[in-house]
Simulated assay, not measured.
Amino acid sequence: MKEFTINTNDSGQRIDKFLSKAMPELPKSMMYRLFRRKDIKLNGKRCEISAILSEGDTVRVYVKDEVSAVKTQDMTFKQASDELRIVYEDDNILVVFKPIGVDSHSNSTSSADTLIDRVKKYLWKKGEFIPEEERTFAPALCSRLDRNTAGLITAAKNAAALREINSAIQSGALHKIYRCVTVSAPPERESIATAYHRKDDDRNIVRISDVPAEGFREIRTGWRTVAEKNGLYLLEVTLYTGRTHQIRAHLAHLGAPLLGDGKYGDIRANKRYGVFRQQLCAYALEFSLPESSSLAYLNSKRITAPPPDFEQRFR
């Protein structure tokens, strides 16, 4: 038998979702059978799969030891660098600046020194993340940036904040604003364009279409021209959808590829200016959360990064 006492970060979720994360070696088919046999108890009583957990609840799972392994937190974050540029922090979230060359999350080629590892280490050293006390939650990034793109990323310190920020991203209540340099003028100085996007996972490249097509998803990208000089254009771009390589691929499709972009850009222009890394930065965040949201206090804030280095070209 395994017993769990629900803490703040475990609360607010369905009991089956909690158990899937807390006991990853327990097959779902077996978990559902345990519910039917009343071998999973909530506060000493039988419960439905859809029961929502509250802080202080007790969950007991009557199961054989060989399938009762409980998830333990990955502690490799302790190997990460202490370098972390915090732009904004409160009790619920961090907004951090991801530098070029650092992965947002781990992948097959990255080390343990990712941005999320640095965030976990920072909060662990502050005593705000205690891995031994968490069954299903760890601090998490609410979005990601490509390795070679710098800029702001929001991290959630607790499960409630993670749900709120993820909901805001899905509903469009979190606006992500970028600065970039293009080697040609966009079709208009200021506009919002709609197109259709499909990712080729095998080649890690996306295709853009002006018309709906099978496998393509709608995207919306807004921009305004901030400055122009020496054949280059400084744009401020607002994402109304968040697809892979959306800014790079959509602007290139519109005839305004990013300076330094080796995948979607103008190779001859990159050589002419001697720039071989996309000139793109996630520059600002704005919130328009419902007043009922526990994070509605963020609506009065515009969180900005320091101006990216590439803006010096326009001075």
Results as ranks from 00 to 15, higher is better:
Q13N: 05
S20W: 02
S20E: 01
E25L: 13
P27V: 02
K28M: 06
M31E: 01
F35C: 14
R36N: 04
D39H: 13
I40S: 01
K41S: 12
C47L: 13
I49V: 15
I52K: 12
E55P: 07
D57H: 04
V59P: 10
R60I: 14
R60G: 05
V63P: 12
V63G: 07
V63Y: 06
D65E: 14
Q79D: 15
Q79T: 11
A80H: 09
S81Q: 03
D82T: 13
L84P: 10
V87A: 13
V87F: 01
Y88T: 09
D90P: 11
D91E: 12
L94W: 06
F97D: 14
I100Y: 05
T109M: 11
A112F: 14
T114K: 04
I116Q: 06
R118N: 12
W124T: 02
K125T: 05
P131C: 02
E132N: 11
F137Q: 07
A140M: 00
R144M: 15
R144W: 12
D146M: 07
T149N: 00
A150Y: 02
I153D: 07
A155V: 01
A159E: 09
A161M: 00
E164T: 12
I165E: 08
I165H: 04
I169Q: 14
L174G: 09
V181E: 04
P186R: 05
R189D: 15
S191C: 12
Y196R: 09
H197K: 11
R198Y: 06
K199L: 07
D200S: 14
I208T: 01
I208P: 06
P212H: 02
P212V: 01
E214R: 10
R217M: 13
R217A: 12
A227V: 03
A227T: 08
G231S: 07
R248T: 08
H250L: 01
L254C: 05
L258W: 13
L259Y: 02
N270K: 07
K271D: 15
Q278H: 05
L285A: 03
F287S: 12
S292K: 15
Y297P: 12
N299Y: 07
K301T: 03
R302M: 11
I303Y: 03
P308E: 00
D309E: 11
F310I: 05
Q312F: 00
Q312E: 13
R315P: 01
